[in-house]
């Protein structure tokens, strides 16, 4: 397929190569400087994070050995029995997994409702008062910057152990994260319906209800589903601090070296997360597809 191209005369070729080198010299210099800066930062960070490549190289066997250890002894001759032994705690684990999913659901729902209540106050096209917007935005920012596990740690002491704490922690974090996204959606709406309602003298609440909400609801639902998926992952580790879900069981298994339990629970978590992932993705495409078709 190659076309017979004529080679350039050497003088012409070197002139072109020189011109090319001159034109990219600046970009190259900048790239080099950036690389040096990056390497310096890596060295600094490596020092601060106590990176020990030698330890890693020495112990990387441990990683593979660990993986090998948690793989359950399954034999073909006794597959049913081995599977039953591996998943000896299946009813208990499934119940905990269900609890985890319910935690994620409630956390997303409550957080989503709070975000819904707050997002209109943070949108610059609906609220003229700078103070209200500033206050709402800072509140949302605090809710989403403090990690949910930190909220859970504090709530466990205040409310006592249990899944309710996990739900509250997830809800607060979700409110912050979704509130920001919702507000951005609201700021990108078509303002013509809003102007129309304002012209008829509708109140602020009526304007939001009839001019804004029809435009944003499907986007809100899509972001909510995305957050649900993230929260399933988050709810899975809430048990690490005693806030319910399957995390507690997993932590016990990993700390006490119950190797086959570790792999069994880990596999359950992975399958659940991937399942939820696929399901919400389909639902989201459905929601957004309807929006696009309108």
């Amino acid at each position: 397929m190659t076309l017979p191209l004529d080679r350039l005369p050497p003088a012409r070729a070197s002139a072109l190569a020189g011109a090319y080198a001159a034109s990219v010299a600046g970009a190259r210099r900048r790239g080099l400087a950036l690389l040096v800066l990056l390497l310096a930062l890596v060295a600094l960070a490596g020092f601060a994070a106590e990176v020990r490549p030698l330890t890693l190289a020495e112990n990387i066997r441990n990683f593979t050995a660990y993986i090998a250890q948690i793989v359950p002894p399954l034999t073909l001759s006794n597959l049913g029995g081995d599977l039953a032994a591996w998943y000896w705690g299946l009813p208990k684990w499934l119940a905990l997994l269900g609890e985890t999913l319910l935690m994620a659901y409630l956390g997303t729902l409550f957080g989503g409702l709070a975000a819904f209540a707050l997002c209109f106050a943070a949108a610059s096209n609906l609220v003229a008062s700078r103070a209200v917007r500033f206050g709402t935005r800072r509140l949302l920012e605090i809710c989403r910057t403090v990690p949910e596990v930190v909220f859970a740690l504090i709530f466990v002491i205040a409310f006592g152990l249990g899944p309710m704490v996990g739900v509250l922690a997830l809800a607060i974090h979700t409110a912050g994260a979704l509130g920001k996204l919702f507000a951005e959606v609201v700021e990108n709406i078509d303002m013509k319906p809003v102007e129309g309602l304002t012209a008829t003298g509708a109140s602020w609440v009526e304007t939001v209800r009839f001019a804004v909400m029809p435009q944003v609801l499907s986007n809100f639902a899509s972001y909510g589903l995305l957050r649900f998926e993230i929260n399933v992952r988050g709810a899975g580790v809430m048990g690490f601090v005693g806030a319910g879900g399957i995390g507690q069981e997993f932590l016990v298994a990993i700390r006490n070296f119950y190797y086959s339990d570790v792999s069994a629970i880990l596999l359950l978590i992975i399958l659940t997360v991937i399942g939820i992932d696929l399901a919400t993705e389909r639902l989201r495409h459905h929601l957004l597809g309807r929006e696009a078709a309108r």
């Binding site: 601060a48 994070a49 106590e50 990176v51 020990r52 330890t55 890693l56 112990n59 990387i60 441990n62 990683f63 660990y66 596990v149 992952r233 988050g234 899975g236 580790v237 690490f240 997993f250 932590l251 990993i254 880990l266 978590i269 992975i270 997360v273 991937i274 992932d277």
Partner: peptide, 21 residues
């Protein structure tokens, strides 16, 4: 992606020991 970062941390602690690494 399905494995949370805290779980990864627990696994890596078994390999390189406690600490920021």
């Amino acid at each position: 992606r399905a494995v949370d970062v805290l779980i990864w941390a627990l696994i890596w602690i078994n390999v390189v020991g406690l600490g920021p690494f």
